[in-house]
Amino acid sequence: MAASEYPVVLRFEGMNPDQIGRYEVHRLRKGGDLGHIDPNKPKPRRLIGSETWAQEALAEINLMKTQNFAYELADLDRRNRRKDIAKRVVEGPRDPWRASKHGPLREVILTANKEWFEKTASSDVLFDTQREDDFERTAVEWLRENFGDDVIHARADLDEQTYHIHAVIMPRATVERYGKTCAILQPSAHPLIQNYEDAQDSVGAKFASLVSTPFEFSPIVPK
Rank of each mutant, 00 (worst) to 15 (best):
A70V: 12
G92K: 06
K206M: 14
M170W: 01
D84A: 15
Q130P: 02
G21E: 13
L105M: 14
T52M: 06
G92R: 06
L73N: 00
R79T: 12
A112K: 00
P42D: 05
V125C: 03
D38G: 02
R106L: 02
V25P: 01
N195V: 06
P191E: 05
A199P: 01
P222S: 09
K83I: 06
K114N: 13
D128A: 15
L76I: 03
G49R: 05
I152D: 03
H164F: 05
K180Y: 04
G204K: 07
C182F: 05
I37R: 08
P93D: 09
G92S: 07
F147M: 00
T111E: 06
F117W: 02
R29M: 02
T52W: 06
E13N: 05
Q186T: 10
F147K: 00
K206Q: 15
E136N: 14
E160T: 15
D128V: 02
N16Y: 11
V108E: 00
D133Y: 08
R46G: 04
G32R: 05
E91R: 10
D84K: 11
I109P: 03
P222L: 08
A173K: 02
R22T: 11
D198I: 02
Q55C: 06
G204W: 04
P39R: 11
F127Q: 15
E72G: 03
L192G: 07
K41S: 13
L10P: 00
L105C: 05
H36C: 10
E176C: 07
E56L: 07
D149F: 05
V168P: 03
Q194H: 14
